[in-house]
Structures are given as structure tokens and as C-alpha cells.
Design a protein around this nucleic acid. Structure first.
Lengths: 199, 199, 199, 199
DNA sequence: TATGAATGAGTTTTCATTCAT
DNA sequence: AATGAATGAAAACTCATTCAT
């Protein structure tokens, strides 16, 4: 009830921000657009967030920490190394499936916005790369993965492939039906682990 | 001569723009910064370019058309399908090695700037994806590549892996010495074509 | 009791306002600062005062009316004219000694803020000048003071000297120990009544 | 001609600023008001000045340095100590007579704006006090002035009296005709040097 | 060509004040 | 009385673009 009103409003603003950031991009959205979309007074955005940037920061941090948790969880699970990578890919793809706008914002405005928010969150972003690299390195030690490809390098390729895939969906370059999402997880792993070459 | 001055100036401005765009990002560079870096009067930028955006557009188009040519050339060459992909990766990596600032600008400000210039140049960008996909598809038809991975999908993974690699170099996430560049071409192809898995 | 709570809160707010106005100046203090300093809810300031300005108004009026009373009392006392001026100077200096923050606020934000509150309270401020002028004029009529200096003029010089002195203390331009305060009253009167010149 | 246009514009803006600052006060004048008064485009104010504050800073510094020069000149002249003070008072009064708006702005917005620009320019302001104090101190050493009034104290009283006088003129508290200005210089010196008391 | 002064629309942020509870 | 969420007007400043010379 009344006691819940405040957090609700905060959420309302964050949700609205996702929508407009996804629609217009961070730079092209005025704070007024967020307020309008949230059906809230202009100043309320500043009541809950210290700046427009911080709205985005919060969106990123909330989601990215889930990703980091998911990768850590995969890493510590009993799965095979290849299935660990599949779990990571699956989590990212499901994140997109579950809330495409949010993932679009995170990828377009943070992860790939190297001159602005990518810079700001470089550390968290790198943590993800490092965790993936660790899975690969463990796989190499365990004999699953070949050792002539540097694990950090492989992690970048793996993550880059996934992100590019999402980009393709986001911009309609490649089809993105539910079926595609289901397939994509396996395809990514197949591609990276088994390779394109016929055996 | 005097007649040659003009084109020189134009080049001077483009080169300066690369530097400042790479340094500060497109949004954070003012037209004055470009003029300063080019050691040219403020208004001259507008004499040669109709807007700040068009400076970037021109930088992108010039470079990207070379990339498209390179991919087409690879496609039409007598190389094996795998070597065609290697040629593409090699061209992109060499582009970065040859002029890292320019590639940084193109990737960060265009290719990955999905809400601004990425949108504007979607068509040219997609043409690259399509050309790569064609190479993969031909490889599938020719029996080199497995057919259970969609060629468009594979192209995205391939291109995404390369671009992520460049991003890693650009932002110092992974080491980028000359030796690394040399290796990278092969590693990328190994990764994508042969896969991480030990055979 | 509960019935006494209200006036207490009011006082609490006024006292807090003095502190923050003195510390940050009127323009730089937000209503939230007053509420924080008073350890009171934001909206309560508006429960007791119709506006931020009115908080300052009340502080000024309360103190200034005491000053006016003091001058009137001096005027009507049996003191010599010179001692009447000394009493006025003494009252102002003691006001500062007793509550420097309050006097700082009154001088800096009202008396010398000619474009804002000085304008608003011009009448009360002028009343003080007029009362001092009256003392001088009486002294002239009574033969104590020379008549070739206009009494209104003399009053301005006298008041200006005192206020500048307080300013000097407030901003640390001249030393302001207890001893200095004691001396100052006499020095001001000596300066204005007897003059700097050796006799 | 054209080459002189730029400095003219700068001057135009400064002059306009004096007018509007004098009329509305610094805080109540928007940059647009200055531009309007100067009959100049909004942005041109920022072409010549980095901020609204800096417009005021420049007005103050230009005028105040003249005052400092004038006091120094008086100090180093062959005048009697009393006439040196008279020269100082005369310069300040003439400054007001010559350009009342400018002096109003300087006194109201800087000299007496202890919480904003007074703070910023404290050093320059104090230099004036110190120079006046030096004149007094020299007069004491030379036997002209009594030694039982501290010279810094006397300087504050002297300067405060003058400034209060200008304030009186500025706000119409006391009459300010040309005749009054002429008289004022002598009266101030009489008051401070000889004192109000009949001899 | 070349210069740089001039223009003015656009947007973030602040914060006094109101109001529902 | 007391709370603090909600409102929205106001203004400084930026900077791409134009234009007179």
C-alpha cells in the first residue's frame, strides 16, 4: 500500500527508462521522456536518481551482477566444461528472450559503448570475460579443450560471438523467433567448441 | 600548388577527426577540437563537410568499402573456404594494425553504435555479414563446412569474435603486440573453423 | 508537554536556519539543509513558515526590532550625546558577540543585500539610520556636535563604520577577540566623535 | 572597422551587464537579459565570457584595480596624510559620480556580497583596506594622527563610512546631487579626521 | 578558400513549494 | 503536528551550424 508506493515508483521509472533507452538510445532520450513514459513528474526522476546516467548505471549493474553470478554458478557446477559454456550462453540468450529491451540497452549503451559507459563499467565487464576465460582454462587443464588457443582469447571470441548474435536479433539482421533462441544456445556452443569444419 | 591545397586540407581534417574521435569519442568531440587538431580554422571544417556527422560518415564509408572489396576479393579467389575466412580476418586485423585509431572509431562509433551511426550504415554493415555468410554457405555446399549451423548465424559468430578481439585490443583488455596480431588471424580461424574442443 | 512542542520546533527551525544561513549564505542553503540541521522533517519548515524567505524575514525582524528599541532607549536616556552613540555602538557589537551567526546573517543577507532583502526591509533599516541621525541632530542642537556635518550624513558614517567593523570580524579581516570587542566600542566613538587627528 | 568589431562587442556586453546587474541584481539577471540589453545573441555572451560570474568578475577587477592604483598613488604623493585620505575618498566618490551603475554593482554584488563574490575577491578587497591602513599608520608615525586608534581599525571605519555613504545614495536614503558629491569628500574626511565633536 | 564571430535551440539539473497521508 | 514523496518552473551552459568578410 502506501508504504510500498515509493519503491514502486522507483521501479516504474527504471522500467520506463528501459523502454525509452531501448527505443531512442540513451543520448537521444531526454529525462522528460523517461518521466513521460513512467507517467510521473519530471522532478521525480531526480528524486530517485541523481542523474540520467545513474538510471542507466543502475539498470546495468542490476543485470550484470546476475550475469556474473550465473557465470560463477556455471563455473562451480558439476557440468562438463562444454556444458558450462552452454550454460553461460544460455543465460545471456535467455536474458534477451526474457527482457529484450533491457538487454538491448545493456549491450548497446554499456557493453559496446566503449567511449562512455563501457569505460565506466570496464571492471565489471572484464570480470565476465575473466570468468569465461577461467572456464576455458580449466577445460584446457582438464584435457577437454585444446591448449594452442589462449583462454583469454577464446573467451573474447566466445563472448563476442554471443553478443554479435544478440545484436543481430536486436537489429533484425537475423531472425529471432523463440525457436531461434532455443537453437542459438546449442549452435553457439557447437560453433565455438566443435568448429565450423566438417569432421 | 594552390590547386592541390584544397584536397590536402580535406585530408588534414579527416586525419585530425580520426585522432580526436579515437581519443574522445564522437559525442565528446566538438567541431572545434577537430579544427584545432587539424590546425585549421573553425569554419573550414564546414567548408569541406556539411556536418560533423558527415566527417564520420566519410571515414566509415572509405574504410568499410575497402573491407567489402577485400571480402569480395577473398570470396572470388581460388583459396580454400577456410583460407577465405582467414583472409577476411587478416584484412580486418591488418586494418587495425595499420591504423588503430581509425578502426577504433569505426567499430566504436559506427559498427557498434547501434542507436546512431550503426543504424545509418546498417545496409553497408549488413553487406559485410552477407558476404561472409556467402563464403560459409559456399563452404557448406562444397562440403568443407558442416551444414547444421546456419551460414548467417556462423557469419555473425565469426565477425563478432573478430570485432570483440579488436575491442579487447582497443581497450587493453587483452595484449595487442605485433606478435599477437600475427597469431590472432590464425587463432580466430582455428577457433571458428576447428573449434575449441580437442579432437 | 505536547502543547509546548510546537513553539519549540519553531525555535529549533529558526536556530538551525541561523546556523546554515551563516555557514552557506541564504542563496546556497536549501530548505532541506535547514530541516536537516534542525533535525526535523522537510515539510515541517513549511508548516511553520510560509517560505524560505520568511524564515530569514523573521530572524531579521526579531533582531532588528531589538536594535531599534536599543537606539530609542539610548536616545531617551539621560546620557550625554556621545555616550548615546557609544550605547548604540555597544549594543550592535554586543549583539555580534552574543550571537555572531545571527548578526552575520542579518548584515550579510539583509542589511547589505541591497538587491534582495535590503530592499524588502528598507524601511526598518532606514528607521535605524534616522534614529541615529536624531541623536546626532540633538547633539548639534545641544552644542555637543559641530553643525557643519549633516546629521543624516554623520549617521551613515557612524553606522557604516560599525558595520564595516563587524564585516571585518566576520570575515577575519581584522582580529576579533573578546578584548577587541571591548575596545571597539570606545574606538568607534573616539574615531567618529573625536576624529583621527591629533589635537 | 571590422577589425575593431570584436572588442566592441565585448565592451557592449560588459556595459549591458552593468545596466542589468544594477537594475535587477546579479542573481536576478539571466544571461538572456544581458544579451537582450546588449542587443546581441544569447550565445555571444559565452563566446566572450566563460560564465555569467566571469562577466561580473571582469567588471569588478577592472574597476577595483583602478581604485588600488589610485590609493597607491595617493599614498606615494606629496600630500599631507589627511589629504591622502581625502584623495582616496574623492576617487571613490568620483567613481560613483562617473558611473553610478558600475559602482552599485561592485559594492552591492562584490564588496558587500560576502557569501559569494566578496569571498572570491577577498584578497583584492583586503589590499585596499591594507593600503588605507598604511596611510593612517604613516600619519601616526609622522605625528599627524593619534596613535591610540589602531590603523587597521581606522581604515575599516574610514572605508565603511564611505561605502555606507554610497549605499545611501544608491538606495536613495540620502540625497545625492552633484553638490552633495562635492561636499561629501570633505565631510567624510572631516568626520573621520576631525571628528564630530565640537572643539 | 579561409576565418572566426555570431546565432539560438536544446537539455540537464536544481529546488522551492505543495500535498496526500 | 509531522512526514517526505511529488511537482514543475526556471536558467545556465553547450555547441553545431551559419554567415559576413
Amino acid at each position: 500500500m502506501a508504504r510500498e508506493a515509493a519503491p514502486e515508483r522507483r521501479r516504474q521509472i527504471l522500467d520506463a527508462a528501459v523502454k525509452v533507452f531501448a527505443r531512442q538510445g540513451f543520448h537521444s532520450t531526454r529525462v522528460a521522456d523517461i518521466a513521460d513514459e513512467a507517467d510521473v513528474a519530471y522532478g521525480l526522476v531526480y528524486h530517485y536518481f541523481s542523474s540520467k546516467e545513474n538510471v542507466l548505471n543502475e539498470l546495468f549493474i542490476q543485470r550484470w551482477s546476475l550475469l556474473l553470478e550465473a557465470i560463477e554458478e556455471a563455473d562451480q557446477s558439476a557440468l562438463t566444461h562444454q556444458d558450462k559454456l552452454a550454460a553461460v550462453a544460455g543465460f545471456i540468450i535467455d536474458s534477451y528472450r526474457y527482457d529484450p529491451d533491457l538487454m538491448k540497452v545493456i549491450i548497446v549503451e554499456v557493453t559496446r559503448a566503449a567511449n562512455s559507459f563501457g569505460q565506466t563499467h570496464l571492471e565489471e565487464i572484464n570480470r565476465a570475460y575473466a570468468l569465461i576465460a577461467k572456464i576455458v582454462a580449466d577445460g584446457q587443464k582438464g584435457g577437454t579443450f585444446r591448449e594452442d588457443i589462449d583462454s583469454a582469447f577464446a573467451a573474447m571470441a566466445f563472448y563476442g560471438a554471443i553478443e554479435q548474435l544478440l545484436s543481430g536479433w536486436i537489429f533484425g539482421v537475423i531472425p529471432g523467433s523463440d525457436r531461434d533462441f532455443d537453437e542459438a544456445r546449442e549452435l553457439i556452443v557447437k560453433t565455438i567448441c566443435e568448429g565450423l569444419a566438417r569432421r
